[in-house]
Every structure is written in structure tokens, then in C-alpha cells.
Design a protein around this nucleic acid. Structure first.
Lengths: 216, 216
DNA sequence: ATTACTAGATAGCGAGTAT
DNA sequence: TATACTCGCTATCTAGTAA
């Protein structure tokens, strides 16, 4: 009885939730793209299941969806609401990889800004996660509201460009993804945290980690 | 392909609208309450229809709903939104019947209150509509917000009880259904208007009339 | 007009199994 | 492990027709 919800939906659209409506089996057959006989059969089945009630006239049947039937439709509606509800978190998977070493220097330069924006004093070194194309693409789905921008500034006799930070967590440890503004085509993401993540999480190079970004 | 939307819904709930997800055919089979073979077949059909795209690994397939598939789900969602959208009007059908004659006296007594509440000076006489059980029941679906209550008062040496008024229209003529608070089991509804409705609408006793109540 | 029964036609299912 | 092919069987569908 895969079609039951489909029939109830059509009846619902015709107003059978609000009271008895006149529906001929041929009319229903057309809506269902099937024969009159099949439509008639389906009505009988749904009737037996107690999802509709029916009043027979000499020429017409009138149908109303019961509380039980209404419930089925409600459940289905709830599913669709859930499907189209905006995602609350984005989960990326990447494998731990060796950093370029220069991370330490940059973190030190941006340290004050990071602390002010992220709310924690970052450990001077990043955890690098190598991600595949699919996971990398997820970054582009992160809405602006979840991104903290750090403005460019001058220090140490040179200028440092804009950096985007995305607060996230790895195994419930607070951290942030750091993206220099100029970078495209990222396949390694740099993660900042209060601690030495690799030691703290006891992970080795090549191991997979989930990093979770909260939305809203 | 009656089940296509059902499969897309399940995939949608698993997050296949936001990116590729790993789904085995056995897992899907369980959700669909069918065999692994059937689930596999359904995936292939939906794939052929262009409603999902798929990436094959050695052990797993990863599936994502395409724009076309998303559209199907959207359309379905819109249907459910339409089904559960509150009704905007209630249409009752009744046949014109002879009044009890006492209507005139009561309308005269309540005249001031009616005028103040309804915004028109009622003709001193009601149009009576005899309704069947089904149409009578519709009155109970009228929300409080659409009902104007007239409080009890004393006049002419006696007391007059509470009356509920429901603004409505018959063939675009503004009117109101009047229900004395004490009445249960109504099979005749009394309608008040600015004019002599029976003459104005040119209807005879026994003729059917539609009376429409606006909600919100 | 309708609804709905019977019975023959057929589409879809799933066990077995290849890959 | 997976996915997915073949094929016999059974579910379901519909034409014909009764009520």
C-alpha cells in the first residue's frame, strides 16, 4: 500500500480534510493516472484501513479524511518540513597531514586578532587536514553568518592579508578553520585550537578526523 | 514509478539534498520495507530519470539529489503546505424555509446591538435556511475569531440572552448568521441582512442557497 | 450515471547468483 | 563485503460487465 499517502494527499488537496467532498472513482483515476477500477479499489482499501470515511449516494460517493488519515498526512508533512529545514551543521572529513611549518609564524602574527575574534588564545601551530574534492566543496556551503573575517594589517615590517575564520569543533574540542583570503582550490584546511590538537586528540598523520561547523 | 517520490524523500531526510551521502541498497531496502534487489533497481531507475546522481566506490555508492530531484520534492512539499493551509472560507448550503414569525420581534429588540456590531442596520426579519447534518456541522468549524458575540441585556421588561453573530455573504450580499446562545442541534440557521433577502435574491421556499463565511 | 465484482493479463518482486 | 543481472512467481492492474 505504497500509494495510500498519494491518494490521501489528492483527497486532502480537494478539501477532504475539512468535510465530505464528492469524488467519483473516475475523477480520482485520472488524478492517479490509473483506471477507474483501480481507483475504486484503492478507495475501498483506504476505507478498510480507517483513513477515510464515506457516505454513499445513489450516484455519488462523498469522502472525508478521518483523524487517523489526517495524522498520516501530518507525519508526511513533517518529513518535508525536516527535509527543507536549513542544515544546522556541516561535517567535513579530512586526514591529518604534515603542516608546512610556516604555520607557526603566521599564527604568532595574527595571535591577537584570533584571540579577540575567536575567544581563545590559539596554540602556535595549525593542524592540517587534507580533504577530497567533495569535502572541500562543503566549505563553499558555509553561510557568511558563520564566518568571522579578520582584516588585513601591518606588522613586523610587512603587511598581512585578510583571513576568514570558521569556528568549528573536532571531537568536541573547540577550534577554528583558518582560510587566507587569497586561497582558492583548497585541499588542505588549517585548523587552529587552544591546544596542540594532534597531541591532544592522539591522532597520527594519515588518520581521518571529522570537523564540525555549526550554522546559526 | 509511484515510489519515486518516496525514495527521494528518504534520501532527502538522510541529507542527500546537501551533498553526497553514503547509502547502501540494503539500508534503503530496510527503509522502503522491500528487498535489496528492489532498492537497487529503484536507485537505477531514479538515476536514469536524472533525479539523483551517483558516485560508485569499490564498496559504497554515494548519492546526491539533483536539481531536478530537488524540484520534485519541492513540488510535493508545496502540496502539503497547501493541504494544511487554513481554509479561508466555509461554504454552507441550505434550503430557504419559512420562519417562525417571531424573528421580527427579536430582531427589533437586538437592532441596536446588531447595528453596532455588524455595521449595518438589519431588516426586521430573518431568512431561514434549513441545513442537513453535514452543513450544520460546518458551523462548529467556524473559529472564534470569525464570531461576534452580543452580550445579554434587559429591555421591554424582560431579559434577552447572549447571541452569536457570524458575518457572511449570500451571492455577494452582506449578511450574518445569528445563533442564540442556548441553541444546540441546529438544523435551521437564521440569516440577517440589510434587506429583505428572500425578495432581494428572488428565491422561493425550498430553493437552495449558498452562504459563505469568511475566515480571517 | 455511478461503484465494484470476476478473471485474464502483466508489471514488479525477490531468490539465486555473478561480478 | 558491495551492486545488480536473470527469471520464475505473485501482486496488482484493467477490460468486461453486473448491480
Amino acid at each position: 500500500m505504497n500509494w495510500e499517502i498519494e491518494v490521501l494527499k489528492i483527497l486532502g488537496l480537494k478539501g477532504a480534510l475539512n468535510g465530505f467532498i464528492t469524488v467519483t472513482s473516475s475523477e480520482l483515476a485520472e488524478d492517479l493516472d490509473t483506471s477507474q477500477q483501480t481507483a475504486s479499489n484503492r478507495i475501498l482499501s483506504i476505507l478498510k484501513n480507517g483513513n477515510i470515511e464515506r457516505k454513499m449516494g445513489t450516484r455519488h460517493q462523498r469522502i472525508k479524511i478521518t483523524a487517523k488519515g489526517r495524522n498520516m498526512l501530518c507525519k508526511e508533512y513533517a518529513d518535508y518540513k525536516a527535509i527543507f529545514k536549513p542544515v544546522e551543521e556541516i561535517i567535513m572529513i579530512g586526514s591529518v597531514s604534515a603542516g608546512l611549518g610556516e604555520g607557526q609564524y603566521y599564527v604568532a602574527q595574527y595571535a591577537k586578532q584570533f584571540e579577540a575574534s575567536l575567544g581563545f588564545k590559539p596554540f602556535e601551530g595549525t593542524l592540517n587536514l587534507t580533504v577530497d574534492e567533495e569535502n572541500a566543496q562543503k566549505l563553499s556551503h558555509v553561510p557568511r553568518s558563520a564566518i568571522i573575517e579578520i582584516e588585513s594589517f601591518k606588522a613586523d615590517g610587512r603587511s598581512f592579508g585578510k583571513v576568514s575564520c570558521i569556528p568549528a569543533r573536532i571531537r568536541d574540542v573547540q577550534c577554528a578553520i583558518v582560510i587566507p583570503k587569497r586561497s582558492h582550490h583548497i585541499n588542505v584546511i588549517e585548523v587552529l585550537a587552544q591546544y596542540h590538537l594532534r597531541k591532544n586528540l592522539k591522532v597520527k598523520e594519515g588518520e581521518d578526523l571529522e570537523i564540525i561547523i555549526n550554522i546559526e
